[in-house]
Simulated assay, not measured.
Amino acid sequence: MHAILSLGATHYDLTIPSNSHYNAMAISHRGKALKYLSLALADIDSCSAASLDGILATCYALVFQAYYMNDGAIDFAVMVRGCSLITTHIQRRFKGSKMFLLQNSEEVMQLIEPWLSKDMHPNQDDVNLCIRDIEQLHPFIHDGSTLCFFESLLNTYLAFQHSIQDAFRCLGDVYKVWHSMENQNFMNLITSTNIISRALFLHYFAIDTLMRPFLLHVRGHKHPSLSVGAIVMEQWADAAYYGLPGNIQRLVKHEVDLVRREKANIPLILRDGS
Rank of each mutant, 00 (worst) to 15 (best):
M1S: 14
M1R: 12
H2M: 13
A3E: 10
Y12T: 05
N23L: 13
M25V: 08
G31Y: 05
K35L: 11
K35G: 01
Y36V: 05
L37I: 00
L39P: 02
I44R: 11
C47I: 00
C47S: 12
S51H: 06
G54F: 07
L56D: 01
Y60C: 10
L62R: 01
F64V: 10
A66C: 08
D71F: 05
V80R: 01
C83I: 09
C83D: 02
L85Y: 05
I86M: 11
T88A: 14
S97L: 10
M99K: 13
F100R: 01
L101E: 14
Q103D: 11
N104F: 06
S105P: 05
E106L: 11
E107Q: 15
E107W: 07
L111R: 15
D119R: 15
D119W: 09
N123Y: 13
Q124L: 15
D125M: 13
D126E: 10
V127Y: 03
V127A: 02
N128I: 14
C130V: 03
D133E: 09
Q136K: 15
I141P: 05
D143W: 14
S145K: 09
L147T: 07
E151H: 12
S152L: 06
S152P: 03
A159T: 05
S163Y: 02
S163Q: 04
R169F: 02
C170F: 10
L171H: 01
L171D: 03
D173L: 13
Y175V: 08
W178K: 09
H179M: 12
H179A: 11
S180G: 08
M181I: 09
Q184G: 03
I190S: 03
T193K: 10
T193Q: 12
N194H: 07
I195S: 10
S197L: 04
L202P: 01
Y204N: 00
D208A: 11
T209D: 05
T209N: 08
T209Y: 02
R212N: 07
H217N: 12
H221W: 05
H223C: 11
M233H: 06
W236Y: 14
A240C: 11
G246E: 14
G246M: 11
R250K: 14
L251I: 12
H254F: 14
V256K: 07
V259S: 02
V259F: 02
R261Q: 14
E262P: 01
A264D: 14
N265L: 14
P267E: 09
D272E: 15
G273T: 05
